[in-house]
Design a protein around this nucleic acid. Structure first.
Length: 454
RNA sequence: GGCGCGGUAGCCAAGUGGUAAGGCCGAGGUCUGCAAAACCUCUAUGCGUCGGUUCAAUUCCGACCCGCGCCUCCA
């Protein structure tokens, strides 16, 4: 089968073309800015991109996919955070990079093959800016910054359909900058001692010391690690303009060829029907949800429960639903005969995924099959589905908690009473256990202790 | 103002020009001393409102109402 995916540039669902003859399928996904913990909205995008990665591997073979995702470790926000904490930039970005990696692992996201950083590619960025200045696509401003001249690129706006004249003229746009045109964007930002601390590098020829603008990093890292043309470029919708529009302008003017053959943008996550914000109290990181007793796998499931190109309303109830659904899948997996991957009972699930990444339809198809039982479903074919969705069923439903001695003692007592068929006492002890927040799950020969769910 | 998306059962959420996937919750049942798990059954004559096209519309068209996103560095 072929993977069909919406293309934001042509605005139609198109087949993802096979890798070009010279090598692997080149896939770039805009990564996080590492100045704070990523929130679950960020992870919606990364989980969706993880599904794309998995489908590409299934379609073209794992060795024929090259996946690159960057880390933005120098920009206004990272520098601002370093200044606020009065610590070196690298220390701040290392801390949040480590947490990001840990969260991705918890969510069972396959790491990209290359994870370049902006600070690790200053030369490459400067080189591109040099070329753009020489070609007349960029100019130095009075303060030594360098701007891209959007009128030099007639196709500017093709991706976002935003025309130059529609850009709002804000005060700040003219106050702080020295650009010729509101639409022009920074390739290089001149050093500002009051704001930038000690963060500065030697700039392009003729420019002041400073740091790269945000957009150029992706263009430079893509050029270095994937080449002048890539097969798929993805990110959240918010990046469509200006970030991706600007990437196209920079890369195509510099390289003189098509930048990305396919663009894909996932929609935002809403929480309780609205935008997440710290002030509304609906801003969640993965850590917040784990602290509340939800498993990372349930978070992943919940993030897949809506169509990636539609806003998804995330609620704590949806996490309950996800935990229950995963329990059902675990139980189903346990009933399957041990077999290879030959069966095609799960074809509808893959068909849904390959039809523009319809994850909710895929989950629907999966449960339809699960509920019907029968067919020649076996563990191998089922595990292949779980791989595509990235659902790890062997992960515990919730982190195990240490069992207090008191609870253990009560449980032993009740088990003894039950064995003696002293059911009155056994029931009474069950109530005592509930009072301290625990419950006993009996089987014929043994029991298990679990914390009571709220 | 410009560009774009959406309104489907208590909640979340697919989908189609021909009569509403799936998950959660809820109800009933089987099985367990009880509880839990598991399994079985049930749960939208209805898809924002009003018109139109059609043999047939939730699905196409128009208007309207409501919600959401982006419009210079937010995934």
């Amino acid at each position: 089968m072929a993977i069909k995916l919406y293309d934001s540039l042509s605005r139609e669902v198109r087949e993802l073309r096979p890798p070009h003859p010279l090598g692997a399928f080149r896939f770039y996904n805009c990564g996080p800015t590492v100045y704070a913990p990523a929130h679950i909205g960020n992870f919606r995008t990364f989980v969706i991109n993880d599904i794309i990665r998995r489908l590409l591997e299934l379609e073209f073979g794992a060795s024929n996919v090259k996946h690159v995702r960057n880390l933005t470790d120098v920009d206004d926000r990272t520098i601002g955070q370093a200044q606020k904490e009065k610590r070196p930039l690298a220390e701040i970005t290392k801390k949040w990079t480590d947490l990001f990696h840990a969260d991705c692992a918890s969510l069972n996201c396959i790491p990209p093959h290359v994870e370049p950083t902006a600070t690790g590619h200053i030369c490459e960025q400067v080189d591109m800016i040099d070329v753009l200045m020489k070609k007349g696509n960029a100019y130095r401003s009075a303060d030594g910054s360098v701007y891209f001249k959007i009128t030099s690129f007639p196709e500017y706006g093709a991706l976002s359909r935003i025309k130059e004249r529609e850009l709002k003229i804000t005060n700040s746009a003219f106050d702080a900058d020295h650009k010729d045109d509101v639409g022009d964007f920074a390739l290089w930002k001149a050093y500002k001692p009051a704001e930038d601390g000690d963060v500065k590098w030697t700039g392009p020829q003729g420019a002041a010391e400073g740091r790269p603008g945000w957009h150029i990093e992706c263009s430079a890292m893509i050029k270095k690690h994937l080449g002048d043309t890539i097969d798929l470029h993805t990110g959240g919708v918010d990046l469509l303009f200006p970030h991706h529009e600007n990437e196209i302008a920079q890369s195509q003017c510099c390289n003189g060829t098509t930048f990305a053959r396919h663009w894909y943008h996932s929609e935002h996550l809403l929480v309780d029907g609205g935008t997440m914000s710290k002030s509304k109290g609906n801003y969640y990181t993965l850590g917040d949800l784990v602290t509340r007793g939800y498993s990372p796998m349930a978070v992943r499931y919940a993030l897949l429960a809506g169509h990636p190109r539609k806003q998804l309303n995330f609620t704590l109830d949806s996490l309950h639903a996800a935990e229950s659904a995963l329990t059902t899948l675990r139980a189903y997996r346990a009933t399957l005969p041990f077999t290879g991957t030959a069966s095609d009972v799960f074809t509808p699930v893959f068909a849904a995924l390959e039809d523009d990444l319809n994850t909710p339809a895929a989950l629907g198809a999966l449960f339809t099959i699960v509920n019907r039982r029968g067919g020649d479903a076996g563990s191998g074919s089922f595990d292949r589905v779980m791989f595509a969705l990235g659902l790890k069923l062997d992960a515990p439903a919730a982190p195990t908690t240490d069992i207090p001695a008191l609870v253990k003692a009560l449980a032993e007592k009740r088990w003894a009473a039950k064995q003696a068929k002293n059911f009155g006492e056994a029931d009474s002890l069950r109530r005592d256990l509930a009072a301290v927040g625990w419950t006993m799950l009996d089987s014929k020969t043994e029991y298990k202790l679990e914390p009571l769910k709220k």
